[in-house]
Design a protein around this nucleic acid. Structure first.
Lengths: 325, 325
DNA sequence: TCAAAAGTGTTATCCTTACACCCATGT
DNA sequence: ACATGGGTGTAAGGATAACACTTTTGA
């Protein structure tokens, strides 16, 4: 292949997650125009400045937000043409690399953030159908499923199968219809279906449809494909928690088991079984007692735990395989 | 971040896997100089020609090998400086995107390949310590482990922890020492350790050490970081088999359960328990009888099966959680 | 004393693992 | 007949799921 390609830029996009008021929150910055209010922190990778892409991502995050992320993981690289609608020959083509970053929020960090235009936002404001903590989201039956079924049954808009499945089967599996269970890891599949069916404003911005005909819109829209990257990040994090102790990147140094459980529940977007959760966490050797305890708001004081680092040396995949309810 | 970056190229690298003579084989092409004989098929992504990166990868593979890959999956994007040693200002910086592709070999394809300089090579020739089908590889105790321990115990060469683990703990977990079990998914971790300890020729080529002092070398070397991409591909494939039926991308239309088992064993690099394997595959609804049977070389004729596509509609994660032995 | 949240114990069920055994064909 | 690989049944063990219950605090 010859090297006479159009000029290419590597864009880095970070889905930076922290717990804010018992909810998983994502760091957002304002979009470039006044139509779109939310974007992921992003920047251009400069190989002269950054030794690796991971280092570039860390610096970009620090520069934009004054935050130092703990855990960082690459998600996916998107190279679609037409990702940006400006198509002049002078415009560089942007290949964007999505990242997931986890961080703890301290008071100081909150203050540092106050000086910038960045801010935290509950990630379920972007993907409201993913939060089942207060029961099945009403949006599903009121709006989403009927619209998806209508779309899936329209042969004009659905010509090709994806991974061997037609649109109807994909909807059924991703949204837990007819015997299928709701699978909390299928976040990206669900977003892609909702996007393909033209139910989110990104489909309008990308010129795929004229209007969603939905008021209010289905979750807050984001710049370009940033909401897709967020969906990828959530899916990856939900999957990762089951075999890596990354949850502790989001917890303070010491915490009660209820704190831990609520954090897990907020990420999975569903309740977990209390008694079995506690047993599993302790039995797996993921935590150890600090000795201290916390007087809670009404009720028996809870023992404080900390992450037991030694577990990393003992088992290759220490995670939380937690059950429903 | 300003956009005055060095010129960047997106390199696509494909680890293309097929079964050749009951072994997982990878498609290799000759390296650019005569020192390195093996490279992965690679090319430059041109956004003007290719709608998406996945499409670019498919075209690149077809152009170089006349093969049409079935399953394609993005692995990881590497942006390290110094990945190529030439560092002149005119040299474009290459960010490389690694891909895994699976394909079936038909006789025609084999013939088409004959006209090119590409060829198949058993992937265990690159990572010989990953094949446990004939028992524990001798290389481990003869060469690898003692060299790794020596490296891990040298504080001069090991200053920083990785994922909270020191070098010693990483070796212990990745290579199943002292109570840890050998985990067939830790292919990349093992390759990274072997590379870091200077046991493979890539470490020489990258200028990290003067010589490995190993004769014969530890597996065939590859161009740049291609062997690392191969290790990533194997790890991903071994993990993926457990929850997606991608194994059938490597099988012919119809096959016996023993064929299937041997394919699985060759990928995992270890034996699996025959009786339980058969039960799981059938119980999981992954295969169905074709009705035909095959007279094997001595012994009872085996029933022929085919992949049961309907399973994709029934369960979100149909894979092979197969036990040892 | 009661509400609220923390924390413990016990059993049923399923899935994996292991082992033993029978079946159909070629030589 | 017997060697060879194909194919089946069944019981033990471990992990998860579901349920009921006790403990310690604040109001």
């Amino acid at each position: 292949m010859p090297g006479h390609a159009k000029r290419i830029e590597i864009g880095l996009n970070a889905a930076i997650v922290a717990m804010v008021d018992r909810n998983p929150a994502i760091l957002r910055i304002p979009g470039p125009d006044n139509k779109i209010t939310d974007a992921l922190p992003y920047g251009v990778f400069d190989p002269l400045k950054h030794r690796t892409m991971d280092a570039g991502l860390r610096e970009l995050v620090e520069a934009q937000t004054k935050l130092r992320p703990g855990y960082v993981e690459q998600l996916y690289t998107f190279g679609d043409r037409g990702r940006h609608r400006v198509q002049g020959d002078e415009t560089p083509h942007v290949v964007s690399v999505g990242y997931l970053a986890l961080t703890r929020i301290h008071k100081e960090k909150k203050l540092q953030l106050a000086g910038t235009s960045a801010g935290w936002k509950n990630w379920y404001q972007f993907l409201p159908w993913e939060d089942w903590r207060s029961g099945r989201p009403l949006l599903l039956d009121e709006v989403i499923i009927s619209a998806l079924l209508e779309w899936a049954n329209d042969p004009e808009r659905n010509k090709h199968a994806v991974r061997g499945l037609d649109a109807m089967a994909r909807v059924r599996i991703a949204f837990g219809l007819e015997g299928s269970e709701w699978d909390d890891e299928l976040v990206l599949d669900r977003y892609e279906l909702v996007y393909s069916a033209g139910l989110v404003d990104e489909a309008v911005n990308d010129g795929r449809i004229k209007s969603t005909n939905l008021d209010p819109p289905l979750g807050s829209a984001m710049l370009h494909d940033h909401r897709r990257i967020l969906a990828t990040a959530i899916a990856r994090l939900r999957a990762k928690l089951k075999y890596r102790p990354v949850i502790f990147e989001l917890m303070p140094e010491s915490f009660t088991l209820t704190d831990l459980q609520q954090t897990v529940e907020s990420i999975f977007g569903r309740g977990v079984h209390k008694q079995n959760f506690r047993r599993q966490v302790e039995h797996a050797g993921l935590v150890e007692l600090t000795g201290a305890s916390q007087r809670s708001t009404g009720g028996r004081p809870a023992a404080l735990f900390r992450f037991r680092h030694a577990v990393l040396q003992e088992r290759p995949a220490p995670g939380l395989r937690v059950g429903r309810s």
